[in-house]
């Protein structure tokens, strides 16, 4: 089966996020009030051919940890968004 996967990568809590902080600072100028805890990150979508959803997710999570994120400063989360 083919599974469509979404991987989200973001900085770990406690790691300074200058991009998120800059976005947050820009919000009042646009009229957005009360938005806090803005964190910037990356998202990746791809397809995995696997026997089961669990297998696809495990492969995607392994890929996320080995290449898509730097575990020294980032956390990653893979999830299946569609199966076909």
């Amino acid at each position: 089966m083919k599974f469509s996967v979404l991987v989200e990568v973001s900085l770990r809590p406690g790691i300074a996020d200058p991009e998120g902080a800059t976005i947050e600072r820009a919000l009042p100028a646009l009229g957005f009030e009360g938005i806090t805890a803005m964190r910037a990150g990356k998202a990746f979508r791809f397809e995995v051919e696997a026997a089961s959803a669990a297998d696809a997710e495990a492969q995607a999570q392994s890929l996320a940890e080995r290449l898509l994120s730097n575990p020294v400063i980032e956390q990653s989360h893979a999830r299946i968004v569609e199966a076909s």
Binding site: L11, I15, A16, E19, V72
Partner: peptide, 17 residues
Amino acid sequence: LTEAGLLPGALQKNRGL
């Protein structure tokens, strides 16, 4: 070298972007 694990830590975007 940090990505390869030959040196500790990581390099992030500059403060102030």
